[in-house]
């Protein structure tokens, strides 16, 4: 990889990993996982499902918090406080700058996911040792596959942050649009399915139908990354499915970065 882009990715990663926000998020996720150790015992059945669900949710929550706070902040600080002048005074093209920042943010998400997965593995292992009878259907591989799928979603969301940072001039708007994309991305598939199944009962205007249709194609379908339930039931996920959602993440992120690059190349850094 281009040494220049890599050097930018590394300083973005270092800047993020040393931010106290990350410690706060890590601590919060740790607390939820610790809580699962205590709370799981209150359930009288399907303990493994509760444990897996809580732990993967904690990883998702920690990762999302990191993107909404740290990733948005790292991008906006560059533009608001003009750190970008120092970076772009080096022989970076605007596209290389965006790729470097994106890789830095992805590295940051990867580090966070690794850390949270390690803690979560220990938590699940502790509960499993405590209640071995409830973990007969449990499969470690499914848990790691679900975590991997969450990481793929974080890749897409980091690309969304980069995109909105280039089209807006305010970090608040970037945050707002990223959260909106997450919410819509999680629900759009369900909405479309609901509309299709209830087509005869619900009379939607053509405009609403058009908006839903366009949204379906523009907004990333983030529900494909939610494999918590399968992992909780110990159902393995096919490698072809994992490959397809990996390709989906990479292609969607690449397209978003391409659009971001087109917009950012025209933007004046006053």
């Amino acid at each position: 990889m281009n040494r220049r882009i890599w050097s930018l990715a590394v300083i973005t990663f270092k800047e993020g990993i040393r931010d106290h926000t990350l410690y706060g998020i890590g601590l919060f996720a740790l607390m939820i996982m610790g809580l699962s150790l205590v709370v799981t015992g209150f359930f009288l059945r399907e303990l493994h499902k509760v444990t897996v669900d809580i732990n993967i949710s904690a990883i998702t929550f920690g990762g999302l918090l990191m993107i909404f706070s740290l990733s948005v902040n790292l991008m906006s600080k560059d533009l608001d406080k003009r750190t970008i002048y120092c970076v772009l005074s080096k022989p970076f093209s605007r596209t290389q700058y965006l790729i470097g920042k994106f890789l830095g943010l992805v590295l940051l998400s990867l580090a966070a996911v690794c850390m949270l997965t390690l803690i979560s593995t220990l938590t699940i292992w502790a509960v499993k040792s405590q209640y071995p009878n409830y973990f007969k259907e449990f499969v470690w591989l499914s848990v790691f596959q679900a975590v991997f799928a969450e990481f793929l979603m974080f890749i897409v969301l980091n690309a969304v942050v980069i995109f909105f940072s280039t089209v807006t001039t305010s970090s608040f708007l970037t945050l707002l649009f990223t959260i909106s994309t997450y919410i819509v991305g999680q629900t759009v598939e369900e909405v479309v399915q609901f509309i299709q199944s209830q087509a005869n009962e619900i009379q939607l205007t053509t405009a609403v139908q058009a908006v839903v249709k366009i949204t379906q194609y523009i907004v990333p379908n983030l529900s494909v990354y939610d494999l918590k339930i399968r992992a909780a039931h110990g159902l393995s996920i096919s490698s072809s499915y994992l490959l397809s959602i990996t390709c989906y993440s990479l292609i969607y992120s690449a397209v978003l970065l391409l659009f971001a690059s087109i917009v950012f190349s025209r933007r004046e850094l006053t």
Binding site: K14, E15, K81, T83, Y85, C86
Partner: peptide
Amino acid sequence: HVGYLPENPYFYDHL
């Protein structure tokens, strides 16, 4: 081959 110093430079805080 150019070096640039902006007015009131701001760098990455944690580096």
